[in-house]
Amino acid sequence: MQALSISTVSKTFGTITAVDALSLTVERGEMFALVGPDGSGKTTTIRMLCGIVKPDSGTVTVLDYDVQKQKEEVKRRIGYLSQRFSLYGDLTIDENIEFFAEIHKVRGYKQRRDELLEFTRLTPFRDRLADKLSGGMKQKLALACTLIHTPDIIFLDEPTTGVDPVSRRDFWKVLSALLKTGITIIMTTPYLDEAERCSRVALMNDGKILLTDTPAGLKQHMNGEVVEIVCSDIRRSFALLKPNPSVLEVQAFGDRLNIVVRSAAADVPGILSFLASNSVEVSDWRTVRPSLENVFISLLTDRREA
């Protein structure tokens, strides 16, 4: 059964086309990520899915309900976590959850609240005002509030932006545990490492989806190979390789460089000798699995050249 499907949905704000004839389907039980740079239309898409933004054209169906025509049915079955922290800072954790339980008409929410607090490990802080929580705790509270009415789908708009790395890990553990309960999770994220944890990923740019696939499947689309080179004088090597025609992309990481080439077997010997002729010592090199970031950048470059 499909969790949601949108077909040829567009939305413009003034002269800016935020979402351009987008189509997408997500199955039940998936953890699906919309990935793209700022301004690529991720947030507008997720807001249209929740019924907060009305599309100019196209249809949005969530859980077999038309989002525009059957708003009430949809609202009862979805949870939405917006990009900015959106809870009542002057209410405690308990009171925030209570409020969202009541407006969603959840009867006997107390047991569910205790479960959620236990699940997000917020129980010891339940009487603390939301404003006095750390970024990670706020985000977990917001998640607990979106889960109080046991929705079938939750929409998370950049849930870990501005959250420290430890809390991010913690948040992801909660999400993984949640996925096991059969819920469908749709999220947007600017972090490609987070997208790798999802079952499927849609890469977005300029209001369009470039590709939708599993993280592994996306890597098949990679045009070329990624080679890691450990060498001396990283900065100078970087400057040397950047204009080299056989190097499609260079990135510097501490004591090594990651370069993208069309074919490792064909291009690497030439590059090594080029570096040697410039008196750069290469101590080691190997081909590595491309990251989503490599894939995404390669896709964007292909598109620009096309």
């Binding site: 609202k75 959106s86 969202f100 509030c145």
Partner: peptide
């Protein structure tokens, strides 16, 4: 200002 209105928008209220 605090964006809480969006949470109410997606609720049955």
């Amino acid at each position: 200002e605090r964006n809480t209105i969006e949470q109410i928008d997606v609720s049955p209220v």
